[in-house]
Design a protein around this nucleic acid. Structure first.
Lengths: 231, 231
DNA sequence: GTAATAGTGTCTATCAGACACTATTCA
DNA sequence: TGAATAGTGTCTGATAGACACTATTAC
C-alpha cells in the first residue's frame, strides 16, 4: 500500500483565493498575472504554497496569501472547497484548496511581488471572469461565484462587501446588484430587522441633499446570519 | 520562495469518508479500527492516500476508498471540506479531504483489510460519534453531521438513506428521525410533490395488514433538489 | 415652496400547517 | 366489523409583498 513517506506520492497543494469586491458595474474578482511557468503571463486566482514551517493551519495560509496581496487583515472568509486531479497542473497531481473572501474595495491596497507580476480587479460575467484563466481557475472561480450568488438569497453575507458604516439603502442596493432584481424597501427592512445582525451607530448619518440616512454597522464581526428556511 | 518541487514542503494528503446510514435507533457512521500507528487500535473515519498514478481526481480517490470499505458503487456523495494543520497528524503537516456519503444500510457489505483491522457502524450522538476518534476525526465528523442535519431542512437529501423503493410514509419517517420532530403528513406530501423528484413505481405496493402503500423511486439518480428559500 | 431620498403603515392575496375526513387492506 | 395505515380535502391564522403614505433634509 501507499505511504505518506513516499514523497513522490504526495500531490502538490496550493491555497488559492477568490477575493470579491463590488464595483459600480457589478461584482469583481482580484486576479494576479503569473510571472513564471506554467501559464506565465496568464491571469490566475492569487495563491501560494503552504509553508509547512510557518502556517499553523489552512486558514492561516490563506490569510497570509490575502495579506500579501491586498494588505487586508480580517475580511469575511470561507472555504469553497478542494479541487484536485492529475491534469490541472502540468507539474503533476495537484490540489487547490480554495477560499473566498469578501471585502470593501476601498479597504484594499494592491500589492505586487512574489511570482506574480501584477494584480488587478476584473469583472465577473454571468459565471466567471471575462478573460481566460490559468489552470482550472475558471471552473474554480465559477464554483465560488455560484456559492456567493446562492448565499445572497438566504444570508446576510453581502454586508461584507460594504465598508464598516453603511445605510440600509446601500445594503439593499448591494443585494439588488448581486441578485439582479429590485427588492421592496419595506419587505427588505422587515427581513433585515428580523435577523438582528446590524445596529445603528448613534448619531452618525449619511448626509446629502435630502433626508439624512442612519448609518449602521455589523453587530459582531464575522458572523453570518441565515434567514429562515423551510421543511 | 517555496516550490512544489521541494518535496519536504508538501503536506501529507489523505481522503477520508463520513459514510452515513440510518438504523432503527438513529443515524450511524461507518468507522474503521486502525491497525497501524499512529493511533493504532483507535477508531477513525475510513480513508486512504491519493494514488497519484491510479486516481484521476479527488472524487475518484474517495469513491475508491468507499468501494474498498463497503462494496457500494454509487451512493450520494458530497465534499464536506478540507481540514489541515501542522498538529493533527504526528507524521507532519497534513490535510484531510473529507467527503460524506449517504447509503441504505442494507446495500452495504463491510470489507476488511488494508491497514484497518475492522469496520463497524457506530451511532451518532447529538454531535459526533459516541466514542473517541483518532486524529481530529471527531471534529471532522461533527462538521459532516452538521452539514447533513442542516441540509435535511431544505433539501431532498434524506432520500438517499432509503433503499431504491420506498413509500411516502417511510420517507417522512426518515425526515422526522433526522430532524427530531414530527411533521404533518399533508404538508409533507404537498412539499414533496412540489419539488417533483420522485415518481411512483407503477403497480408496486408495500403490503401489510392495512391499506397498501404506493412505492416510489428517485426520478434521476444523484440529483439533490432544494426547497424554496427566501430573500 | 420643490426635489429627493429615508423611513413607516396598511391592506390583501396567498399559503403553510392543523385537523378531519375518506380509502383500502388484513384478520 | 375493527384495527391500522394510506391518502385527500378543508379551513384559518399568519405574513410576504405591493403600494401608499409621512418625514426630513438641501436648495
Amino acid at each position: 500500500m501507499n505511504s505518506p513517506d513516499d514523497l513522490h506520492q504526495r500531490p502538490i497543494v496550493s491555497v488559492d483565493l477568490a477575493i470579491f469586491a463590488l464595483a459600480p458595474d457589478g461584482l469583481e474578482v482580484l486576479l494576479a498575472q503569473r510571472g513564471a511557468e506554467p501559464f506565465a503571463g496568464s491571469w490566475a486566482l492569487p495563491g501560494g504554497w503552504i509553508h509547512v514551517d510557518e502556517d499553523r493551519d489552512l486558514e492561516a495560509a490563506a490569510q497570509r496569501v490575502l495579506r500579501d496581496k491586498t494588505g487586508v487583515a480580517a475580511p469575511y472568509f470561507e472555504q469553497v472547497g478542494v479541487f484536485g486531479d492529475a491534469a490541472r497542473d502540468p507539474r503533476g497531481w495537484s490540489l487547490s484548496v480554495t477560499y473566498m473572501a469578501l471585502i470593501a474595495k476601498e479597504a484594499v491596497t494592491l500589492m505586487h511581488g512574489g511570482n506574480a507580476t501584477g494584480a488587478a480587479w476584473h469583472p465577473i460575467g454571468s459565471d466567471t471572469a471575462t478573460i481566460p484563466l490559468a489552470f482550472d481557475h475558471a471552473a474554480i472561480l465559477k464554483a465560488a461565484v455560484t456559492r456567493l450568488r446562492n448565499k445572497v438569497e438566504y444570508t446576510t453575507l453581502p454586508v461584507h462587501l460594504l465598508p464598516e458604516a453603511f445605510t440600509l439603502s446601500e445594503l439593499q442596493a448591494v443585494y439588488e446588484r448581486l441578485l439582479g432584481r429590485l427588492l421592496d424597501k419595506s419587505a427588505f427592512r422587515k427581513r433585515i430587522a428580523e435577523v438582528d445582525f446590524i445596529e445603528p451607530i448613534a448619531g452618525e448619518m449619511r448626509r446629502a441633499s435630502n433626508r439624512p440616512a442612519q448609518l449602521y454597522r455589523l453587530k459582531q464581526a464575522r458572523s453570518t446570519v441565515f434567514f429562515d428556511r423551510t421543511i
